[in-house]
Design a binder for these strands. Structure first.
Lengths: 333, 333
DNA sequence: CTGTTAGCGCTTTCAC
DNA sequence: GTGAAAGCGCTAACAG
């Protein structure tokens, strides 16, 4: 028995109509007499006919498939975005080709996904490299960046105002009486994706403070496992509070403090940035910026659908509102 | 400018060979004179030719794409499996069509993914419904279940020995002196996916205890959010320890106990089942069964590649070894 | 409202 | 070692 035995031709023959008519019925074209439509539908069901999406894609030059690239599917930040993307995608009948691009050559992955003739792609990551930007500009396939800014303002993207959010976070800590607020992030947030860091700087400036290099903590990778050593550095620094890019990292720092007898929030404050479920799991629970993760994904996908349909008046750069959730890792006075 | 302007035909003309030769070069066929190969390769690079995977799929009846179905991408258990799947898939040059099947009609999703002509699919979930089993049996597309057992032993699957793992977990608690061990799980684990529960029963039997209905706690859904109310029920029951299917649930219970003054592990023990990162985040950290999540995904994908290649001697039902990680939520005496 | 006819871009015999 | 030609299963004009 062969895979995909029954084709549109079989249905046509069986229903005594042309392939074109079957195609019309399958595609919901209205110009079909109800009675013949019924006849065709009946045969389709009887033969268990399932249109071959590959053939359809070749003929129509549309695959109803979008590529989704992310660096780490096990990171809740990205998987939350992905959930929003997936929901909207399936609402619009698109499938998702998922690529966990971590450790692989991104341009290779991109090229591969474009070869699959996806109708569009959503890109997530900690930064936008030049090679990726070039690929994006070279192709006609629409792209949307989810949770990542294009500082040149060329590629459509959906984000919150990270600068403002971090400004608020740091200012808030100063108001609560903390004096030496550190900034902890993975490398890209110090070198390629600066909006969060700029919010930190802005708050310092407003508080009349100088940037203190010893309060800047950089890790290679935001994964949970890399947090332990940096946590110790932080504890041994003069910081009495920290804002962190990435909840896993923030959790690691918090646990390290508590495990070593540092009182949070009395002696040390932690503010994190993504409000994933982790923030409510740790004790003390973590005060956090709340970006609408699911919505960022959902809106990105929505914009992509518009781009793919070549609609006019597409809002290319969306900034979604964020909130700030006070929990037990700050004094909140 | 059109999407995908340059075709195999353009390359053929430019290199003054036939399409067939270009095809051979692209596909690494050895029967090509080195000099013409070089010439073709050169043109390919110059024209930036990228083979159209859709056309290729139609002609060859292979898409080098596999479907991956899971109920919740933000659940670390599933995303860990997915990571293993993705790694092996890309190692074998397969792409993944990801479908978060939660809340959608599964057979619909399945049908849709089969229409895309995937070469195989990996199915994850809390249970295997009859409709899904029927679809699987009806198609010729190979399936592998990852982290899910087929109790009829028909569909290939990769798992650990859940019965044994839970037996060990519960026995261990009895040995440590706990008396009334509860079992907490989402509904399917009481009705459709019984191997874990059977391990619990076996330990009870061996300890000469009767099943006590008041120690069986069932929730509709294993997501974190559903844990609070059940946690309270558990605290008010006579249980002095519990084994939990799902780390998010276990965390919720643990936090509830601690937040309400119950001492863990002195007065109450918790053992969880997936050893995701959460287990190390909570305080106290959680003793857990350790299924090799990444490997379950990886092995599933590996088996699927064999199935897709119609290899012989495929091990259809793999049981991977598990470990048991002692942490601070049990006495470990 | 329905049928005919070209392709979509590639793989794959089959010859030479 | 290379080319010609026939599809893969479907969509999309174009007729009628």
């Amino acid at each position: 028995m062969e895979k995909q035995t029954v084709t549109i031709y079989d249905v046509a023959r069986e229903a005594q109509v042309s392939m074109a008519t079957v195609s019309r019925v399958v595609n919901g074209n209205t110009n079909v007499k109800p009675s013949t439509r019924a006849k065709v539908l009946d045969v389709i069901k009887r033969l268990d006919y399932r249109p071959n999406a590959v053939a359809r894609g070749l003929a129509s030059k549309k695959t109803t498939t979008v590529g989704v690239l992310l660096p780490d599917i096990t990171n809740n930040f990205f998987s939350s975005l992905a959930l929003g993307i997936d929901d909207i995608a399936s609402m619009y009948k698109y499938n998702i080709i998922l690529d966990n691009a971590d450790n692989k050559k991104e341009s290779q992955v991109l090229s591969n996904i474009l070869a699959k003739q996806v109708d569009g792609v959503i890109y997530m990551g900690h930064q936008l490299s030049d090679t990726v930007r070039e690929e994006i500009n070279r192709t006609n396939t629409p792209f949307v960046l989810a949770g990542l800014n294009d500082d040149r303002y060329e590629i459509p993207s959906v984000n919150i105002d990270y600068t403002q959010a971090f400004y608020e976070a740091v200012s808030g800590l100063f108001e609560q009486g903390y004096q030496n607020i550190g900034f902890l992030a993975a490398k890209p947030y110090f070198h390629n994706n600066l909006d969060r860091y700029q919010g930190y700087l802005k708050a310092l400036e407003e508080a009349g403070k100088e940037v203190d290099e010893s309060l800047l903590f950089e890790v290679a990778d935001s994964r949970f496992k890399n947090g332990e050593d940096i946590a110790q550095q932080i504890r041994e620094s003069k910081a009495d509070g920290i804002v962190v890019v990435g909840d896993e990292l923030a959790v690691k720092v918090t646990n390290h403090m508590v495990d070593n007898g540092v009182k949070v929030p009395e002696e040390f404050a932690v503010v994190t940035s993504n409000n994933t479920a982790l923030t409510e799991i740790v004790r003390p629970s973590l005060t956090s910026i709340e970006p609408p993760l699911y919505d960022i994904g959902a809106v990105s996908m929505r914009i992509l659908t518009k781009l793919m349909n070549k609609e006019d008046e597409i809002e290319n750069h969306v900034t979604l509102p964020h909130k700030f959730i006070l929990r037990d890792s700050t004094k909140n006075a």
